[in-house]
Design a protein around this nucleic acid. Structure first.
Length: 288
DNA sequence: CAAGGCTCCTGATAGC
DNA sequence: TGCTATCAGGAGCCTT
């Protein structure tokens, strides 16, 4: 499942392979892949052809490619199974190919492949959000913890003013972006916090440590090229990351905790799973 | 307005 | 063998 480290790996690949190139053709092959582009596939094609990609940007799990000569950009989101692959035009289309960009140099194409169709592409306008510039449609997405302008103390104050639990807050992209189910569980395990802890009752040092653990788990995953849990995630060259070997909680049901040896537990949570060590990560005391 | 839950989607896998 | 149920989950959208 692509979260911040995987998306950053893809962004770096796009910076290497598509920045500076000019779009020559666009194929929209599945309506769901461009459902967020309300003006439709013809508009998407017309507005992309002839445009040169000037950079590759990211905030949280969103990617965007600013286009030369205008305030617009191509936004990409991988959803839970999206891949952006650079492939030669002679390579046959795979079964889940949703969109394709070709370039006027005739070189490698950019293909958007997405089995579960939660991801998508859209054009959007960049708005000024000093000192960064983000697409209008993702202005509600908070900065991520690897952003130099992420304000730790402000986030901590915000958390302590909220009436919610810490795992919910980690997954709220309007509060802190880039965190999904895997890295939420990993950061909470590293910080020895149970996901059901109420944010307003966590100390500032505990929240500071959680941010630190989030950053180290992201950094570790980036070094490994991202996590590939079910082989749906690959970088732009089609190579899987191998960070899943380093996970301490997520997907480790019944395996001994790397700290204390107690078996990792899984609970159903919001139509998904949470993995944690029942010994290192004590659930909150029930309110009287 | 904040918080929480529903829903979109496909393919692998388990169970009968 | 072939069917149905379950699971994976990001994030927009809706309800409370």
């Amino acid at each position: 499942m692509p979260e911040l480290p995987e998306v950053e790996t893809v962004r770096a690949g796009l910076a290497r392979w598509v920045v500076g190139r000019t779009v020559a053709g666009v194929d929209s092959l599945h309506p769901r892949a461009i459902r967020r582009h309300l003006a439709g596939p013809v508009d998407l094609t017309n507005r992309l052809i002839g445009r040169r990609i000037s950079s590759a940007e990211r905030r949280g799990k969103y990617l965007w490619l600013p286009l030369d000569g205008g305030p617009d950009c191509l936004i990409g989101h991988l959803g839970m199974s999206g891949q952006l692959l650079m492939l030669g035009p002679e390579i046959p289309d795979g079964p889940h190919l949703r969109a394709r960009l070709s370039f006027d140099d005739g070189g490698l194409e950019l293909r958007f492949v997405d089995q579960r169709t939660f991801g998508g592409l859209q054009l959007d306008e960049l708005v000024l959000d000093p000192p960064g510039t983000v697409p209008a449609g993702i202005a509600h997405i908070a900065r991520d913890p690897l952003d130099d302008n992420f304000d730790d103390e402000r986030w901590i104050s915000s958390a302590r003013s909220r009436n919610t639990t810490i795992k919910r807050l980690l997954l709220d992209q309007a509060s802190i972006s880039g965190v999904g189910n895997i890295y939420a569980d990993e950061a909470l395990w590293r910080a020895r916090l149970h996901g059901d802890r109420v944010t307003s009752r966590l100390s500032r040092p505990a929240l500071r440590q959680l941010l630190a653990e989030l950053r180290t788990v992201f950094a570790d995953a980036l070094l490994a090229g991202g996590t590939s849990f079910d082989s749906l995630y690959v970088n732009v060259n089609g190579e899987s990351g191998y960070f899943d070997r380093s996970l301490n909680a997520y997907g480790r049901l019944g395996e001994p905790c790397a700290r204390c040896g107690r078996p990792i537990t899984r609970v159903k949570w919001m139509n998904r799973s949470s993995y944690f060590c029942p010994n290192c990560q004590r659930p909150p005391r029930p309110m009287a």
